[in-house]
Design a protein around this nucleic acid. Sequence first.
DNA 1: CGCCTGCGGCAAAGATCGCTGCGTTAGTAT
DNA 2: ATACTAACGCAGCGATCTTTGCCGCAGGCG
Lengths: 198, 198
Amino acid sequence: MNEASGSRPGGRSARVRASVHRAVEDLVAEGVRIEDLTIPVIAARAGVHATTVYRRWGSVAELLASVAEHRFTGDVVVPDTGSLGADLERWATDVARDLADPDTLALMRASIGAGETASCACTADRRTQIAAVLERETARGGDVPAVDAVVDGLLAPLYYSALFVPAHDDGPAPGDRVRALVGKLLGGDVLSAQALTP
Amino acid sequence: MNEASGSRPGGRSARVRASVHRAVEDLVAEGVRIEDLTIPVIAARAGVHATTVYRRWGSVAELLASVAEHRFTGDVVVPDTGSLGADLERWATDVARDLADPDTLALMRASIGAGETASCACTADRRTQIAAVLERETARGGDVPAVDAVVDGLLAPLYYSALFVPAHDDGPAPGDRVRALVGKLLGGDVLSAQALTP
DNA sequence: CGCCTGCGGCAAAGATCGCTGCGTTAGTAT
DNA sequence: ATACTAACGCAGCGATCTTTGCCGCAGGCG
């Protein structure tokens, strides 16, 4: 969002931030456990002095929140296929593909383990993406379910599967699963979906 | 599951294990942050020497996984109210109440952060509980949705909310939310729900 | 009843972490 | 171009964690 935030967004600060973020992603991707993911380790990998990391982020939890926020925002382009169903299907497919990446999943696990702030950073942008899709359909003149209904019907199952279902493939192929979820979400009359979360 | 595992399950070992587990639950319940939840602290609270904890569990992550495993299995009695809707509603309410507990949530966060194995341990028992509820309804002669459909429609939204929605109260009251989810799950014709996850 | 072994208690050493004061570098403004 | 200052590097300190070797107790077994 505001990569250039701070009172001095000049080259070096941005470089350091990028370097540290990259280091965190790499270390998590390499399977370093949360308790071993310490600031000196991160700083060493980033080629930055540990003091800098302590001063800028303070703790591993905040750093993970920062990384998660940047990792999980703005990387999905909201599609515009012309129909709500197709838009949702495409968007959910992108989300599912993202969650299928082991590195992404590892980062999310770490963020969830780091606390509520970092955890919420993983999904904050998803809601705005959903809202954008729904708003587009509204502009077309169609009825849309509530954002929370889409979260319950699409996002929650995808995240749940990613986190709690063992890696071995279960049931439907990824594409079929998304299709089925969207169909179920939109199949029920839209009114009840709207009334679900007042 | 096997509380008395190990080559010498005699009184003292079991006592120590129970004491340490209890200490972890208490500390987490008191709001001690994960990063402050260190082995010496746990050992002191449990009235056990830190060396013992290091030797038996090795790390905080493994200890938390162990606690979570015992915490998330077998503590929910599957209800039998006479109708599928009421059974599911009651069961889901129990689950939601459990997830609303800060200690339980903290334990789950830690387990998720610990990796896939510990993570799956949090929900493994839920599936069997759902299966039991559905089987009971089948014995009554009613049509039931697939277990995966119930997971998607009930369990996933509840877990998602617990993990990714900030603590501040959102939308509906806990009871209403569960009721709405169950209604939506059973409201759509059961056939489509069954076809969702073949 | 007495031996035996696994397991916990204990203390000390070693390692690591997180923090603080100060000098230096590199953006930024005039 | 020069001065200013925010941000980084550096070194060292104190505290805490983690490990290790040894001893003693208690629970199982003949």
